[in-house]
Design a protein around this nucleic acid. Structure first.
Lengths: 225, 225
DNA sequence: GTCTATATTCGGATAGAC
DNA sequence: GTCTATCCGAATATAGAC
């Protein structure tokens, strides 16, 4: 399944992301009407990602956020109970998306196909939800203490799943350590969304990029000497 | 040249890093006696790295810095003219170290050996100066606008040099794009110092880790199909 | 060269009108 | 549900004593 097809089936694109956030956290959101809340959440997240990507989450003041969203302080606080909770909502959504990607890729029996799908779907979802994944990576330190380990576990869990698949593909020990290949696979996937500025003007599209990563992983798995 | 030998020849370890900072920036440092300045710079940088790695540079207040260094506000400001300049000094040192690593590795004629050395020396120097490189990666956004591009250029320059070496090793076009392999090589090097928390309790030492990266790069260069 | 004390600005958060 | 006005603590930076 290539990018276009993946995207058309993807549950978290457009407005539906904010609806998901609202449904998962409506206990802490003062505004109870979904229509109002989703509309403001969209403004708040888009503005947060825009400003934070330039200067960082902590340096972004709520007055910056008012200016960018067009909302007032009161309007902001009707959707979020504190500044911190914006980052927590992001972590929660990223966690949800990755867990669904993993679950879906592991449904099939062929480990080779499962690995390729996992790599592809990670790349596609981190592209569609780029600001969310980018934010979480760079702002994990801004999360309240209890949530920071969650963020690291999202990554460790993904590496573990990749490692298991590699070991199924190549049961005998090869030249390059499997855990190590798994770690590097994720690092290569992250490279694209973390260094977005490198790829904006690039002619390599995301399908080709995924192909290159998959080839590189295959070459590492089968490497001898 | 393995880690221990590299480290014993390395110019920027221990106190000499702070002496380098002082020499390169003494025009903006009020304290003119090297002995005093170097001593305080050491305290300031160590404290900055410790606090920033946990909560981020912007969230670190100068009062935090006073507490951690044992210096007063006046003592801090005798060595740095503003908070921002701490980050600028870091960028400057990282730039210096990488440019010397590149220059030294490219002195030899064999491109295969030069590439292996470049990878190894990047890994070793980013390990020895871990807090400096880690800080620059995560705090590039905290740099004053004019300095942010410098930071990105350090990375782009390294990738370019790696790409040239790969193309010398493998002049004919192979299955995986050379620019792409170069980009991934740097991403793999960075993986270790960016996710330090993964490797603290790991039994893989840095020489073995460098070996694995070099094997993986070789496998990518020679991959067919 | 280093300290304490202070000026001044700006942050997150809230109360109450509409 | 959204706005304006305001509280209060904390931030960077400086002035002047020692």
């Amino acid at each position: 399944m290539k990018y276009d097809q993946f995207k058309s089936n993807f549950a978290y694109k457009g407005k539906s992301v904010y609806a998901t956030v609202f449904e998962r956290h409506n206990d802490s959101i003062k505004t109870k009407k979904q229509k109002f809340a989703v509309n403001n959440l969209e403004k708040i997240f888009k503005a947060t990602f825009k400003i934070s990507s330039k200067i960082g989450f902590h340096e972004m003041s709520l007055r910056d956020l008012c200016r960018e969203t067009g909302l007032s302080m009161g309007g902001i606080y009707s959707c979020i109970e504190s500044k911190d909770i914006i980052a927590i909502f992001v972590k929660d959504l990223v966690q949800l998306v990755f867990s669904e990607i993993i679950e879906s890729a592991l449904e099939q029996d062929d480990p080779q196909q499962a690995l390729d799908d996992l790599i592809r779907h990670c790349m596609y979802s981190t592209d569609i939800l780029h600001p969310w994944f980018y934010f979480l990576y760079f702002e994990t330190r801004s999360l309240p203490k209890g949530h920071q380990q969650d963020s690291k576990n999202i990554e460790l869990n993904m590496i573990e799943k990749i490692e298991v698949l590699i070991s199924k593909i190549s049961p005998s020990k090869k030249a390059i350590n499997h855990r190590y290949i798994a770690t590097m696979t994720l690092a290569m996937i992250q490279e694209r969304y973390l260094k977005h500025w490198k790829y904006k003007s690039d002619d390599t599209n995301i399908d080709e990029h995924a192909d290159e990563i998959i080839k590189l992983v295959h070459s590492a798995i089968s490497y001898n000497s």
